[in-house]
Nucleic acid binder design. Structure first.
Lengths: 183, 183
DNA sequence: GCGCCATTGGACCGATTGGTCTATTGCTTG
DNA sequence: CAAGCAATAGACCAATCGGTCCAATGGCGC
């Protein structure tokens, strides 16, 4: 079995950089310098190069957010309370770094016209998130789980875009305030 | 006074391409080929090159959306009705092309870490939109115009991201359905 | 018709891009 | 110790990047 640290470091570094500057805005040389690895390592672990790495990084970050959703909703006693807690959780994660990073899926989305695989990846990860939220909505007895899931996902995406633009978590704070009035 | 057609064509082409592939994803050669203009024209009209063109394109598209907001809300008799109509209007605009384009501001946002001016531009255009929505909310007698403006802007951004990812206006349709239940 | 100036056309530049290829390293297993 | 393979290291490549520069063009005022 291969030592996961190198592959992992590539994925982690790629995810961070892509979320800051977007897929096309990050060069391999910069990425590899940041990861402290030579080009050979990249093409050994990801024979299809940048695109394959981006796909892996997106799925990895997607799974991370899904774990965050599960862990947060697990503590909630109602869907609205869970939604509020998720909003806070993402706000905290996003502000824990010097640069407010974009949604990991969004960061590769603009490269989708050039790299068809990334389009599919983005759709799958988004779909997975919505399904995950829907699952919790159902569990917590929401009347319309699918509507609730779309609505929350949509609001979170919107707040994330605005937070990224403003480089501040104010949008998440505002969204949290709005969600708080609902229950 | 300079003939506006060349400068205009550059702005228009830039806006279209950036909204498809993002700022970093579009090369000058591709852009100029699409616009049917030589490099000399670009650097004559925009001495600071790509970044200045992107700024102009974003402000131009920003003003376009603001006109759309004004025109749509002008026909509404309540804020919620206006919000619903705006959602429909953007959905229509977005689906009128073969490729569903991203929000024009979003398309340059990922280049902000590299080009500080674009960060400022993005913030100003977003702020301008929110102010515009707030103005109509106030006019139509909404109790909390600023909250209403943020909430709608946030939802529209979220739906736009999802629509861009899915290359379909389904997200706008869904958002419209949600807004319809509110009044 | 002449001169002027806004604008176009495109050759050219160094830097950087993503990707390929091969030599070398170093651990693991027999 | 030796063989073999996983993994690293980085030189090298053609293509493209954004940007500079200057000659050619063309319409308008004199």
């Amino acid at each position: 079995m291969s030592d996961p640290t190198s592959r992992d470091k590539l994925i982690r570094t790629a995810s961070n950089l892509f979320r800051q500057k977007g897929y096309s805005g990050v060069g391999l040389s910069e990425l590899l310098k940041e990861a402290g690895l030579p080009k050979g390592s990249l093409y050994y672990h990801f024979p299809n190069g940048k695109q394959e790495l981006a796909e892996a990084a997106t799925r990895w970050a997607g799974a991370w957010l899904e774990r965050l959703l599960d862990a947060t909703f697990a503590q909630a006693e109602s869907f609205n309370e869970g939604a509020l807690m998720v909003c806070d959780a993402i706000a905290t994660e996003v502000t824990s770094q010097t640069h407010v990073p974009a949604c990991p899926v969004l960061s590769i989305l603009q490269a989708a016209p050039l790299e068809p695989r990334l389009q599919i990846t983005a759709q799958e990860v988004y779909g997975s998130w919505t399904k995950c939220i829907e699952k919790h909505a159902k569990r917590l007895g929401h009347a319309r789980p699918d509507d609730a899931a779309f609505s929350l996902h949509c609001q979170l995406q919107g707040a994330w875009v605005i937070a990224y633009a403003q480089q501040s978590n104010a949008a998440f704070t505002q969204l949290a305030r709005e969600l708080r009035t609902k229950f």
